[in-house]
């Protein structure tokens, strides 16, 4: 182990600041994620909140690869790799199998990307949510099929460039409102989170593990190669997505929605869109359209509250 600059300072003998998230690590270094990957940060925070009494079920997604090939694993909890369309069902089965062994407490967590959630896994997800199965379902949403090399998914924002939405206008379809679909299942707990707010994410996972029934956590997960951004921008973009109001960080308990990260004064969406290669063809009109849709969704939220 090498220190950043090799010099040991003498003036900071005792650290005054305590870690704001648990210091235990269940995700190991050495994983195969790209530089600046938010999916690894998400897993790191999730496991801090969940603890070691957790079983992960991972369908085809970036985590299939980055957890490492056999006989190694980048997580210190049991992991079952599952077919693309079947994360939720496989997780329900694991829960049943554990129950059959008399284990009522271990948390079973389906951990899927946006493709495995918005698209191919939606039927299985909806079934498990509707039956209020006792699992936690996590979607780390990097807004396209990144593991297969950046193809459009139902989670891809309008006009974003992907390999299957080439050309100057990108995808002409809006991002599917998955959260609304999940809310319509009236599950005991759902939340959104993103990596710029680790304390919030860890808290939501710790809270989710205390709740019985179906729990859903939607994570916005910036992807440097897929978004065509520099790896060091990951946390900044995650923060900007929240500060511009594009991604609302909230939780819904027993149908009641509460913002976890209030945004009293929203930054213009242009700050988030600029610098992302996937939006580089955006015209001022495109930016305006995004701004309009963000303003509208916040206005709707205000109406709901009123």
């Amino acid at each position: 182990m090498t220190e950043g600059n090799g010099r040991v300072p003498t003036d900071i003998v005792k650290r005054a600041i305590k870690p704001s998230v648990p210091s235990s690590e269940l995700m190991t270094p050495g994983h195969l994620a790209c530089q600046g990957c938010a999916a690894t940060l998400s897993m790191r925070y999730a496991l801090k909140g969940l603890g070691s009494e957790t079983v992960l079920v991972i369908p085809a997604c970036c985590w299939t690869v980055l957890a490492g090939p056999a006989p190694r694993s980048a997580v210190g909890v049991p992991l079952l790799h599952a077919p693309f369309a079947a994360a939720a069902a496989t997780a329900c089965g694991v829960k049943a199998g554990l129950r059959a062994r008399g284990d009522q407490t271990t948390q079973v967590v389906a951990w899927a990307g946006d493709g495995g959630t918005f698209d191919i896994g939606l039927q299985s997800l909806s079934g498990a949510a509707e039956r209020n199965e006792d699992i936690i379902y996590v979607c780390y949403d990097n807004e396209a099929y990144m593991n297969t090399g950046i193809q459009r998914s139902g989670g891809t924002p309008a006009h974003a460039w992907t390999m299957t939405t080439p050309g100057s206008s990108g995808s002409d379809l809006p991002k599917k409102d998955l959260d609304a679909i999940l809310r319509a299942h009236h599950i005991p707990y759902m939340a959104t989170a993103t990596v710029a707010y680790p304390e919030d994410m860890v808290r939501k996972f710790s809270k989710a593990r205390q709740i019985k029934g179906f729990r859903f956590i939607h994570i916005l997960s910036p992807c440097p190669p897929g978004w065509k951004t520099e790896p060091d921008q990951t946390v900044r973009l995650s923060r900007l997505a929240v500060q511009t109001g594009l991604f609302m960080v909230y939780e819904v308990e027993q149908g009641k929605m509460r913002l976890s990260v209030p945004v009293p004064k929203r930054k213009p969406v242009g700050e988030y869109l600029a610098g992302q290669g996937r939006f580089k063809n955006f015209t001022p009109a495109d930016v305006e359209a995004v701004q309009k849709s963000v303003d509208e969704s916040w206005a709707r939220l205000a109406d709901e509250k009123a």
């Binding site: 182990m1 090498t2 040991v8 994620a33 530089q35 940060l41 680790p198």
Partner: peptide, 18 residues
């Protein structure tokens, strides 16, 4: 906190980057 590799180590002093 923000290391995707979980390779920054907590110390009493300056963090150690592995």
């Amino acid at each position: 906190k923000f290391c995707p590799e979980a390779c920054v180590k907590l110390t009493d002093k300056v963090p150690l980057i592995d």
